[in-house]
Amino acid sequence: MKEYLLVYRTDFNNMPKPTAEEMQALSKRWMDWIGSIAAQNKLGNRGNRLEVSGKVIKSDGTITNGPYAEIKESIGGYSIVKAESYDAAIELAKGCPVLTVGGNVEVREISQVQ
């Protein structure tokens, strides 16, 4: 089993403001989805959500506010899953609720050598 990092991205600025009910329904979808991966014994680490604000430090020493300005979608959170292959990890990612709100999931194999 290898480990893969799933990076959840959404375009926070252009996302329609969800109602309280929509928020709750979305939150349930996330919990059921993570629960589903855990029930398959494929969850490495549920990971974390990241707060929206942030800073970017560039090689020339400049520091800008907010997540990466050049990229429309910013990272909203991440999890680590266990899978046999990239394809299997991608299959897991296809169920991610972020996809239902216009987001995407970056799938990255985690380097085995640390």
Partner: peptide, 29 residues
């Protein structure tokens, strides 16, 4: 019960918890 099993499985996987979670899922979803 479903959400509790979702959390429990994240802390510690066990086949019984996975099965019970799925049973709760059938009742909830």
């Amino acid at each position: 019960i479903l959400q509790l099993y979702n959390r429990l499985l994240q802390i510690e996987y066990s086949p019984m918890a996975a099965l019970n979670r799925t049973f709760a899922l059938s009742k909830a979803n």
